[in-house]
Amino acid sequence: MTTNGHTYTLKVWRQPGADRPGRLATYTVTGISPDLSLLEALDVLNEDLIRKGEDPIAFESDCREGICGQCGIVVNGVAHGSKLGCTTCEIRMREFAPGSTITLEPFRATAFPIIKDLVINRSAFDRIIARGGYVSINTGAAPEANAIPVARDLAEKAMDAAACIGCGACVAACPNASASLFVGAKVSQLAVMPQGHAERERRVTRMVAQMDAEGFGNCSNHGECEAVCPKEIPIHVISRMRREYIRASVKSVLG
């Protein structure tokens, strides 16, 4: 199948380390089947580079089916590429015209420093979750699962928000590099579920404070985040986060 595949030009961001300069390098890949994924085409290119004794392109991926959130490349100027609702690893080569040029760059944001080439450090997301992206319950302390009914549509709404994979495309696409969609998704899930209510004020206050401390920008309603989100997390999670935040602020003043 690969023998009669297509040829593409790949322009790839190469940068040896966070404090070293980077540049776009140009490569040609041949024999690429339209059924291959974009990342598999990069695998093919890397095999070539290794055989030639050159440094392969550093990029990350894991599940290669759009759920782990590990991959993330700006493809032709769009985080995760222009196809809606998919991650970088889900892009197939049939999306690109044979012979075309594909430009690959890392997700860029102050809070996501580059490690090497297309690999970035997203540990800021972990630190935000650590400040409240959970229900504080110890193992062993749970009541019977059906003791707390949850209306079906609420569970569905919570699931829509909980689908976030933490990839960071929302940050990469936002002109302000805001993490509001990411934070809003977790805040919304746990604001909707009754299990999250006991600590909703503490949660939103602490998570928002950490988001600011990490150097993410403010949300100014561009909506780019929703457009690139591979899980199509709706932007109204940000409004809910704001409502939760205001609610917490008012409550802290009025008691």
Binding site: A142, P143, A145, A158, Q189, Q195
Partner: peptide, 13 residues
């Protein structure tokens, strides 16, 4: 299941 429901996991209902 008790524990995961208490964690706010949005199981189907």
């Amino acid at each position: 299941i008790d524990h995961c429901a208490a964690q706010g996991i949005p199981f189907a209902r």
